[in-house]
């Protein structure tokens, strides 16, 4: 690694560690926990949608499986969160394996893949809100019991560092994808699937690997969400808003880049927060601005913020 990069990463890490202590306010802390949580979700989406070029419009299905998995295991089966969390992540990966298995086996791509993922998320949402076992229409409340074995912590700082760790794991996975043969195959499939197949790449297995990894990461974020709020309900865990949130950050920040989803999430949530500060808590305002930002980015900077930075540095 070149020494300038080492310095940059060290500074970045120190800033991230010190960030929650910079301003002593709950709103500041909440803002960063939320932003990092959705940044981690964007990083998860980016594995499949960014590097692999398979745009999912239903990542809520993996996020929700993680959130509901950990909640149901704790509430209905009495499993402590420390064990329920990895089980829920495994469950998310299994759902990924299933959805990827059927859609890639039947050759769904592009808008068809987007639609089928959207439909799976809706099916899960309806199923979860229909059965008493999963709390039906009321959602599920995880009982408050602040012990480390329950993954509940009295201090919010613990959640900040947990979210930071999720982002770190996601970035490490992205870095490994960028350096590995698997990642090179994945990018080749995105650029030209027919050519990749002709060169002897097992397209089905590579895409399956990408969706399983992406799903597991997204489920981990779902687990975090459930442990942080101690409440899950079908509409917010499996709803389209989560699926949109998952892809918005990477698209704005730069899909298929390591830091794009993180930058995108910070930009989108920062914009929303700034709007709130400037014009008061008007419902929908932050989302209007985020939607406008998305359209403007696509129009003028289709490679995202990372692409813009790269271009600027290329000119400088």
């Amino acid at each position: 690694m070149n020494p300038r990069l080492v310095v940059l990463w060290t500074v970045g890490l120190l800033v991230a560690l010190a960030l929650p202590h910079a301003v002593a306010s709950n709103a500041w802390l909440n803002f960063w926990i939320n932003t990092l949580m959705f940044a981690a979700l964007g990083i998860a989406w980016n594995v499949l949608g960014g590097y692999g070029g398979q745009s999912s419009f239903g990542h809520a299905v993996f996020f929700g499986t993680g959130a509901y998995g950990t909640a149901v295991l704790q509430i209905k089966l009495g499993v402590p969160a420390l064990l329920a969390a990895p089980a829920a992540i495994g469950l998310g990966a299994l759902v990924g394996l299933f959805i990827g298995g059927v859609s890639f086996r039947y050759g769904l791509r592009g808008s068809y893949f987007a639609l089928v993922t959207l439909a799976f998320a809706e099916v899960f949402r309806i199923l979860v809100s229909s059965f008493a076992f999963t709390g039906a229409g009321f959602g599920m409340l995880i009982p408050l019991d602040q012990r480390p074995i329950n993954l509940q912590f009295p201090s919010r700082f613990a959640f900040y560092y947990a979210a930071l760790a999720l982002v770190g794991i996601g970035l490490a996975a992205s870095a490994m994808i960028e350096r590995s043969r698997f990642g090179a195959y994945l990018v080749a499939i995105r650029e030209n699937e027919e050519a990749a197949k002709a060169l002897g790449i097992d397209v089905f297995r590579i895409k399956l690997g990408a969706i399983v990894l992406s799903a597991a990461l997204a489920a981990a974020v779902g687990v975090f969400y459930a442990q942080y709020l101690l409440f899950v309900d079908a509409g917010s865990a499996f709803g389209p808003a989560i699926s949109v949130e998952a892809l918005l950050g990477p698209i704005v920040g730069g899909a298929g880049t390591m830091l794009g989803p993180l930058l995108g999430a910070i930009a989108l949530h920062g914009l929303g927060e700034a709007a709130k500060a400037a014009m008061g808590p008007q419902p929908g305002l932050n989302l209007i601005l985020q939607g406008l930002l998305l359209i403007l980015m696509l129009r003028f900077l289709p490679e995202g913020l990372i692409g813009a930075i790269r271009r600027w540095r290329g000119h400088a």
Partner: peptide, 28 residues
């Protein structure tokens, strides 16, 4: 058309952006 540069995958994103803007404008 201008925001998607004529690419199918981007049209998807542009219409998504439009729907976010329209829905929340109505909410506001």
């Amino acid at each position: 058309w201008p925001a998607s540069h004529g690419q199918d995958s981007m049209i998807l994103m542009v219409t998504l952006g439009l729907s976010i803007v329209i829905d929340n404008l109505a909410l506001a």
